[in-house]
């Protein structure tokens, strides 16, 4: 009997030790899991910060682009119109009534044209509000501006104008991507025709820009890492989980196809 009690006591002692070890391992597991969770949380926070900083940079770049367009427009267009108006008004000879009337009418027409141009510029100044109205309108505005220059033969199929859904952050990035692509075309492509195609299909926004310029070797560009702003385009697309396909060859123009999950 005494032997039996000792056995039970021994069993209880061992079992209690095991029962005390279980919480120890449980704590170690929770500690390790919690550490992973902490790392994941910090990583997420870091990515969020990066995203916000990138958004801020994008916003600044969009504003910069707008300012540049306005400066160019004021210098090349409104400035010229007003100079011409001054010249015309200066040459008015009040003694020659008929000619004077004609010149004053011409000046009035020039001033009216300047007012119209200034109104267009005011619209451009509200570029960011334009994004708030939807990416379709923002793209439309961008294309109108390009069309006004009259340098390119444009073929546009913008199906995003009537889009009901929005995604403010993505919209701003998409607009900036388009601006960057158009900038590249203006600066480097020497293109005559530009074809812009935008549409939304199965929650994926498609943006295709094709031009018939001088083209380039994408592999060479990758090695050089010089960019033409391509690095920032890739970085931004990656940031919003998008995909970019670039096709180009010297003398054969360039085609850029972007797919972005939307909204």
């Amino acid at each position: 009997m005494h032997n039996e009690t000792t056995k039970i006591a021994f069993l209880v002692a061992i079992a209690t030790m095991v029962f005390l070890l279980v919480p120890v391992f449980l704590i170690l597991y929770i500690r390790s899991y919690n550490r992973h969770k902490k790392n994941h949380f910090l990583e997420k926070q870091n990515m969020q910060q990066k995203f916000e900083s990138e958004m801020l940079q994008t916003r600044v770049e969009v504003q910069d682009q707008t300012m540049q367009s306005i400066a160019t427009e004021l210098h090349d267009n409104v400035g010229q119109l007003l100079s011409l108006t001054t010249l015309t008004l200066n040459s008015v000879n009040l003694n020659d009534g008929e000619k004077a009337k004609k010149k004053i009418d011409n000046s009035l027409a020039l001033v009216n044209k300047s007012i119209k141009e200034l109104r267009e510029l005011a619209k451009l100044l509200h570029g960011e509000q334009l994004v708030e109205n939807g990416i379709g309108h923002a793209i439309d505005q961008e294309i109108n501006w390009l069309n006004k220059a009259g340098t390119y033969e444009l073929k546009v199929n913008n199906q995003l104008v009537y889009l009901q859904i929005t995604s403010p952050d993505k919209d701003l990035i998409i607009l900036r991507l388009l601006q960057e692509i158009i900038n590249n075309i203006i600066k480097h492509a020497q293109a005559k025709q530009i074809h812009i195609d935008t549409y939304l299909e199965k929650n994926v926004l498609h943006l295709k820009v094709t031009e018939n310029g001088i083209g380039f070797d994408p592999n060479e560009m990758k090695i050089k890492k010089s960019g033409m702003g391509l690095n920032s385009i890739y970085k931004r697309i990656e940031m919003i989980n998008g995909k970019l396909v670039l096709n180009s060859a010297p003398g054969e123009g360039t085609s850029i196809s972007i797919e972005i999950p939307y909204p």
Partner: peptide, 16 residues
């Protein structure tokens, strides 16, 4: 409480 489980279950059986 987890550690005392065995002592509770075998209470009175191991008065060593």
């Amino acid at each position: 409480y987890f550690g005392s489980t065995m002592s509770n279950l075998f209470d009175g059986l191991f008065t060593v």
